[in-house]
């Protein structure tokens, strides 16, 4: 510009862009900015407060001790609290839930996108959304009263036939209600709609051209799904799984109803016993400040884990080919 066209030399200054907001725009900017900013402030206060108030108990116990101690006793002096027993239960329940829910959820999503008619598809999407809207309390109550008893023979059968796998073994004559397995099943049903809807979203975006090409080459429907839809939706499946894992980790009420909430590290997931962080907090309301501070610290640990899982989920989904437009 400068070198070749010396003709149009006079004003070489770039044109000044004037952005003189009208008064109403200034008000608008101020209002939206302050509401956005106050949300930011509010949420960071919550975060900061979590940190500082868990500081009391963490300082007294020591971070490493807190993370590696199983027992939680506030009746002795000094109190011996630790989060390991709770964390193990939380992770075990969430993993059981996700392991059970992922195959069913992905297959159900395939059914919605590639097997059902357009009419049925709309109904099914609505039903899955409905399943997601039902409060977790109702799942918990359902599991507590109905499923808990129905699952006992199932647990017995699994332990009889697969007891050689270490964590599926049970001691004879143990109570099989209130086990982490049953809690996992209930939480699994609870996270089913999350997996289904994320997977459905990515499957429905699979490029129709490639699908038609697969079919035109003589592939069966399953061949088409295996070669086009599933590879395309891989990122979505992984992301949806992690999202569901995050949800399962934070699940409170159902596990508070189902598990005895006594911290322990046990490898027998089919037996009575187990505790999760959120369930434990829910069943220990109204303690002295130190207990509350300890519960806060436990909640903080859980929050950090959930946060990590959710963030990884969104990274995985947005990096994958299918997940660009998917809103988590």
């Amino acid at each position: 510009m400068d070198a070749e066209t010396p003709v149009a030399s006079p004003p070489r200054r770039p044109r000044v862009v004037v952005d003189e907001p009208a008064r109403v725009d200034r008000v608008f900017d101020a209002v939206t900015f302050w509401s956005g900013f106050s949300v930011l402030v509010l949420l960071s206060i919550v975060g900061l407060f979590l940190l500082t108030s868990s500081g009391d108990s963490l300082g007294q116990t020591g971070l490493w001790t807190f993370l590696t101690r199983v027992e939680w006793r506030t009746d002795v002096q000094p109190a011996r609290i630790g989060v390991l027993g709770l964390l193990v239960g939380t992770v075990v329940v969430a993993v059981i839930a996700v392991v059970l829910a992922v195959p069913v959820g992905v297959l159900a999503a395939l059914f919605i996108t590639d097997y059902s008619s357009a009419r049925l598809r709309r109904v099914l999407i609505g039903l899955v959304d409905l399943l997601a809207a039902i409060p977790s309390l109702l799942f918990g109550v359902w599991g507590f009263v109905l499923l808990s008893n129905q699952m006992v023979p199932v647990s017995r059968w699994i332990s009889d036939h697969f007891g050689w796998i270490p964590f599926l073994a049970t001691e004879p004559n143990r109570d099989l209600t209130g086990s982490m397995f049953i809690a996992g099943v209930v939480v699994g049903i609870m996270v089913l709609p999350i997996i289904t809807s994320v997977a459905r979203e990515v499957f429905s975006q699979a490029p129709p051209g490639e699908k038609e090409a697969a079919l035109a080459l003589g592939s069966t429907r399953w061949g088409m799904i295996r070669t086009v839809v599933l590879p395309y939706g891989k990122g979505g499946i992984v992301g949806g799984t992690m999202l569901a894992l995050g949800r399962a980790l934070g699940e409170t009420i159902a596990v508070a109803l189902l598990l005895p909430q006594v911290p322990l590290v046990s490898k027998n997931i089919l037996e009575y016993g187990g505790a999760t962080v959120s369930g434990f907090i829910a069943t220990h309301s109204g303690g002295d400040p130190f207990t509350v501070s300890g519960l806060m610290a436990a909640g903080l640990v859980l929050f950090i884990i959930t946060l990590g899982t959710n963030m990884m989920a969104s990274v995985v989904v947005s990096r994958s080919r299918s997940g660009v437009g998917v809103e988590l």
Binding site: G36, L40, G47, G299, L302, F303, N310
Partner: peptide, 22 residues
């Protein structure tokens, strides 16, 4: 703001209650 809103939507609901309590 977006990062905080995203992060906080993962806050376990029981912790919200515990926060107000404390």
């Amino acid at each position: 703001v977006r990062i905080f809103v995203d992060a906080m939507s993962g806050l376990p609901s029981i912790v919200c209650g515990l926060f107000i309590f404390a």
